[in-house]
Design a protein around this nucleic acid. Sequence first.
DNA 1: CCCTGTGAACTAATTCACAGCG
DNA 2: CGCTGTGAATTAGTTCACAGGG
Lengths: 263, 263
Amino acid sequence: MRLGRSPRPAGRRHKAQGGAAAPAPGPGTPEVQGEVVRAAFLADGAPAAGRARLLPDVAVKRLPVYLRALGDLRAAGWEIVSSAELAERTGLTSEQIRKDLAALGGFGTRGVGYRLDVLVASIRSVLGLARPVPVALVGAGHLGNALARYNEGRRQEPRIGAIFDADPAKVGEALGGSVIRPMDELGAVVAAQGIRLAIIAVPAAAAQEVADRLARAGCDVLLNFAPVRLSLPPGVRCHNVDLAMELEALAYYARPDVPPPGP
Amino acid sequence: MRLGRSPRPAGRRHKAQGGAAAPAPGPGTPEVQGEVVRAAFLADGAPAAGRARLLPDVAVKRLPVYLRALGDLRAAGWEIVSSAELAERTGLTSEQIRKDLAALGGFGTRGVGYRLDVLVASIRSVLGLARPVPVALVGAGHLGNALARYNEGRRQEPRIGAIFDADPAKVGEALGGSVIRPMDELGAVVAAQGIRLAIIAVPAAAAQEVADRLARAGCDVLLNFAPVRLSLPPGVRCHNVDLAMELEALAYYARPDVPPPGP
DNA sequence: CCCTGTGAACTAATTCACAGCG
DNA sequence: CGCTGTGAATTAGTTCACAGGG
């Protein structure tokens, strides 16, 4: 992971001319809405036998990075951006960005760049964020609180739509726009709202039990913050974020004999 | 990332025989302490010109995973473990584990397996955890609180040794074994304790300023939870964890047309 | 020209397959 | 035998280099 390269390319910046650096949502900005995926990576029945081709995980992880950079640019009044400019702002290389964006369907105009509105709409669409994505949060402790409020101010797309906690004292409290519900309602609420994405922010001892409930309720994409490896039925994905592990790994780079990162 | 494969190998389990599944720290467990690194990957001056060979990032990220599995095994009274057993518990492949462990110096006995105590000591040593690693935490909000208490019960090696917050109302409060200090003390405390590792858990708007201070104070390994890309002087590493991005990426896998994970 | 899109070359990482040793 | 350690083969991912369109 090579952060920080600064090739200093990108001559002229394509900002919206006219007024100051206003958000510029004027009539010059054509509507781009709904599903824009021309993508070839999620073939419907194309490439012969086997499973449909899907975007590699590494690329999926980069899409939100683009989205953030694009958001900043848009807020600053840009309308068009080049892969070089994006590279500078994300720490990735421009070729990589072009590869990714081309894989999403290849919008972008040669000699010019990518239109922000098209790009944002496309990426959001690929990520499935074009329509609301409800998320369940289980555990309203310190971490759960932090998560629920993480993007309190900003627009955040996968929006936390239901919060559960085992502590009866917390049930009923408002948190980040939702109300904390008791655990017994988990199955019903998740099913009713068709929630497939869930965040596990409970103590390690409770995590497996919670995961089981979630899986049974139909959640098949989990984000687990508890420091345990969950065993899950096939077909359920689980992404683990373990703060302690994260720190342990970083400790390596703080060893006195590990050289500083490259240029 | 293929989680969940279960090749179901691993015949006999090498538990300590004798009593029941007791922690078995008896006299049969020889002391393994201090630095055990026979590792070849951090050569002192070996391979000709250029920079010393260091462990690839992907491998560094796996070491804490091993550490956790090993901790579980040890708690259950195991003394020896095979790569196959570890594979089953971590979701990695046994070859990969052997490659990693061999790269750390290749302890482990052919036909038998790896001794838990040796393995744990070695990995900890490679990660630099053999001696205490102090960490600074900046920001005692919801997230900071969660982080400070994350491992309140368990032994955690990179231990949070200093906490800072800009809010005068919080200064003086105890949190996870430390006391929250005012931001002005950051430079002095970090320097005095020789802290190189820091966690940024402040609002996005304050993150860059905090990062600058930390870098100036000598912290060169940062774990940033604020949703901003920080610009840092060369030589400073920064690992970003952005909860919102994490969710955005996961949303992809919850798309109705994305097939479930492989076998 | 400028900047995208893409085959080709390269590099890194994983998996295979088996030699080697308790 | 069983399980580690490791070269060889394979696969995935990145970078290079340039063709191609506005």
